[in-house]
Write a protein that binds this DNA or RNA. Sequence first.
RNA 1: GGAGAGAUGGCUGAGUGGUCGAAAGCGGCGGUUUGCUAAACCGUUGUAGGGGUUUAAAUCCCUACCGGGGGUUCGAAUCCCCCUCUCUCCGCCA
Length: 422
Amino acid sequence: MLDPKLLRESPDVVRAAIAKKHLEVDLDGILAIDASWRALIREVEASRGRQKAANAAMAALPKGSPEFQAKLAEMKAVAAQVKAQEVQLKEAEEKFREAMLSVPNLPHASVPEGRTPEQNVVHATHGDAGQPWPDAMPHWEIPGFERLFDFARGAKVTGAGFPFYIGDGARLVRALVHFFLEENARAGYLEVNPPIFVNAASATATGQLPDKEGQMYETVDPLYAVPTAEVPLTNFFRDEIVEEAALPIRRCAYTPCFRREAGSYGKDVRGLNRLHQFDKVEMLKWVHPSSSYDELEAMRGDAERLLQKLELPYRVLLMCGGDLGFAQAKKYDLEVWSAGQKRWLEVSSCSNFEAFQARRAQIRFRSRETGKPELVHTLNGSGLAVPRVLAALLENHLQADRRVRIPAALVPYFGKEYLTFA
RNA sequence: GGAGAGAUGGCUGAGUGGUCGAAAGCGGCGGUUUGCUAAACCGUUGUAGGGGUUUAAAUCCCUACCGGGGGUUCGAAUCCCCCUCUCUCCGCCA
């Protein structure tokens, strides 16, 4: 959620920012709702003030006295009025809050202009991505692929997009998760194993609810399977005030992630490109507002290093305003080169949310300077998403003999130098 | 799943219808004392919103908040209902 004061005091700043994101929001309507809400506050508070004063007076009067009786009759009317006004106030407040939730976060000044994904800026490219790889093939066409990645049985047992990983396939998933966690721990992220179901309050704080309800799996209890570890991780400190000295707090978590992804189709969903259940390690930071952009660069570097150690070509995109997302102030995407599919696959997205999530989740720190609680800045980034990295490993490191070379950094985790489809 | 007990400020904990935003203690902050430290003593100490004043900060006034929601009442931390969570016992279970 955006700071309501900012909207009130500088609507033009907000207007310009929304334009940069190419979104449409009725700011004048929200400002009108805000004004009428605040007028109502004044009315209700005046009535309540009268009531409170009268109550104090009544407390001093003898219980059955005529003065008491007279006051009582008078205050019955005031009480009825207050009750009615409070209903109105509550409605107005709810309306305002709802309206504020429709206002996106402001993009940072360094975010490039643009409307479409094509206008994202290629920030850097590593490795020989984009070069012709004569022997490369999409991973699902590699002979024996279905022995390690059984989509047919997954579809029978659960549904499309829920594969079985078998043998070296399962081993590679486990090795990648372990590798990511160890590397992130070394980079200063404390490992956390969170719940993989969250309640509605948590899903609301990170923005999955109310709008993206259809993208999550919901249980018969009012619980949602996590679409990313970001949700339980961010909510860890919800409604809390942390010590300023504790910042920055860096944590990472492995969870399976569940996404309904309604409406997806075509080549995007072939093989391991897009699944309803997949494994991911997520990095999260709670930082002092003054350092959040430095922390974003550091986090991007942490994610990049993982790809470098896996010897995978990739590029870094700086997202333009139109492709930035509702809640992000600045975002980098890391895309690995899929040699067999000859396309880029997104494997990480590192974002600075500034105080946008923290305001919604009420995550604050006590400022040493002012002694007052202030909102932290939150950042998160994948480090990394497993299936697409796995797909890139299969395609990019495939040998002429149909074995897959395991990069040196991963060998200790995988336990062998080659993966075989036999 | 069954039975019972409980949820109060940063923490411990009093308060069972009328100046209770809430006693007391601890902690924190400021000060006095002290060669320094400690102790002692004095003062101070929540959050959010609205408004007055101000360039701003400071400051002042008002309102709300005693797990969450609803109800009774002129008036609720206190009475009633629902929910959530915690603890104890029983059952079940990896």
